[in-house]
Write a protein that binds this DNA or RNA. Sequence first.
DNA 1: ATTAGCACTCATTTAAAGTGAGTGCTAATA
DNA 2: TATTAGCACTCACTTTAAATGAGTGCTAAT
Lengths: 343, 343
Amino acid sequence: MKLNERKTLILQAIIQDYIQSAEPVGSRTLSKKYELGVSPATIRNEMSDLEELGYLKQPHTSSGRIPSDKGYRLYVDKLMETQKNAVLHNQQINTDIMRKFGEVEQLLEYSSKIISQLTNYTSIVLAPQIQENKIKHIQLIPIDSNSILAVIVTETGVIRNPILRIRERISPDTLEQISNFINTKVQGKTIKEIEKVLLTEIQYELRQYSDVIETLVPELANVIEAVNDYGLYLSGTTNIFNFPEFNDLFKAKAFLTMLEERQLLSSLITTANDNKLNISIGSENMHKEASECSLVTATYEIEGSVVGWLTVIGPTRMDYSNVVSSMIHLSGHINSLLTKRYK
Amino acid sequence: MKLNERKTLILQAIIQDYIQSAEPVGSRTLSKKYELGVSPATIRNEMSDLEELGYLKQPHTSSGRIPSDKGYRLYVDKLMETQKNAVLHNQQINTDIMRKFGEVEQLLEYSSKIISQLTNYTSIVLAPQIQENKIKHIQLIPIDSNSILAVIVTETGVIRNPILRIRERISPDTLEQISNFINTKVQGKTIKEIEKVLLTEIQYELRQYSDVIETLVPELANVIEAVNDYGLYLSGTTNIFNFPEFNDLFKAKAFLTMLEERQLLSSLITTANDNKLNISIGSENMHKEASECSLVTATYEIEGSVVGWLTVIGPTRMDYSNVVSSMIHLSGHINSLLTKRYK
DNA sequence: ATTAGCACTCATTTAAAGTGAGTGCTAATA
DNA sequence: TATTAGCACTCACTTTAAATGAGTGCTAAT
């Protein structure tokens, strides 16, 4: 059996209708609402075929059809028309506000909010993973007699400032020299690369400076290791309550609990996902917790390499067309802002 | 009518039972479960009196009684015994982990998690409001030809690092001199105090240094103003699903939506709340969104002044006794860690 | 002052009947 | 041969009614 033009048309109509209504679509409704030129009985036969082909399924014997994950997949790959509503969106994004952000993190947090407002789904933004980034600059600043602030700036613009505890006093001049030396050693390296080895080396070479080195460098090592976090911005989490598929306390709770597991989210988003735009539907997701959700993920880049992800998560019955066009638009916007900043 | 000893005893039993069961408490149940030495009929009479006095209410005519907000108030003020379970908790808090945190923010984030785990309610931690804090240190660090990293350290240990954009190049030496000068001017001042006035003065006095000053100082002013956020750590938000009073999509949604409004939470917590430990019950809360919730709030201090709040939010049927003892214990712990650090 | 007894209330549970959107199959039709 | 009208059937959902039971308030006896 082949997917001829009429079947395709009917499938498209069913998916569009279901995305809009969240109700199983029946043959009579379909023939009344859409001008398909055939009777409900014919549509029923076609629907039955589409089910056999795996594009549709039936919640129970005497109900209408709903799309399967395979159906959605065909839809997003072949049938869906991406709306040209970029202009509309442009008005909603306050570009001036976005340009103002000093730190990448703030820009991302704001972007997350914008995405969830634009799409009415939940948005997750993954910040650049600091461990993968090259260090641009490390500076040690004395704070008081027993603490030093280490400012770590990466090439992607992420900044961390762990505080180091030391036992003995250290003069600002000495600290500056130490700071400069460390800088020459770690610049251009990623945090992963630094590791203990390099730091031990530094500690050895600096040993003449002061006894302080013995506590300072290991402390720096500890702190650098701990500096990584998942850097994840969530927005619009309560939007989930708008969708009938989550009108059930268990499902709503499961969804919100999933959102609290940063590691899970992170792996959902980054797994096998180097495309500019990726759609992952229901059972295609690697975690069963997300098997009733779809994710639309766009990457963002700094200096040509992918450093993070913007994503929308919602029910598989997602308004893909709308979400995709929003994401294309917004990720383009963010990329151009980031490029301007780092060129 | 007066609240004699027997009435008090009955009230206490009802509240304890209801906190545990979430079911309206009837006279027969009460007489069987607790050894009150009187018959259900007598208890009924007393209950009727307690309702008249406003300590109890009836969901409907033929149901048992549940405590009113006034009843809970009496309970937490007079009847409740704070458990001496500090030792138990101690084991659950990994003090070594807590000591390790370089930044105050991380300590607070972790504390929030601990609180929600310990109590099984939702926890909110309010970070020190940076605008109210005195500045300990400002340092300008060159990043590249058109951006400067401003590191702002407050006396409460909160660190911010906005990036300043400048048009012209500036030599590291000049920048250091500027940085030092600004430092002498702003040290010990709060961000609020700095305002535009002081910065205009600085700009005037520095005018000979370089043209850069004309863009740099206003940029600093902008960025300092923007630096404030609500600094709020939420944890255990999905715990709300464990309570039957939120076993209703509308209520669950309303609660979670409330948690997303940072400004509202902030005012709920800080309003009229300078006590070491404060309990705010249902309608006592200033926002109607929280009229079915109770908050238990503890302060934390740095160098003797209150800089932030730890709070637990849950249904008015909260296990006050347990929460209070957890909070006393944990806030004491955090305070001692902070004191050690800043003395 | 306390309590046993009893009629009454009302949310909740259970069962049964009715509704309606939708299907699959068959036979008639173009 | 493809399409369609007709019809019996399915099944979630709604409606209605009756039964249940935990609890009350009131009254009269202790």
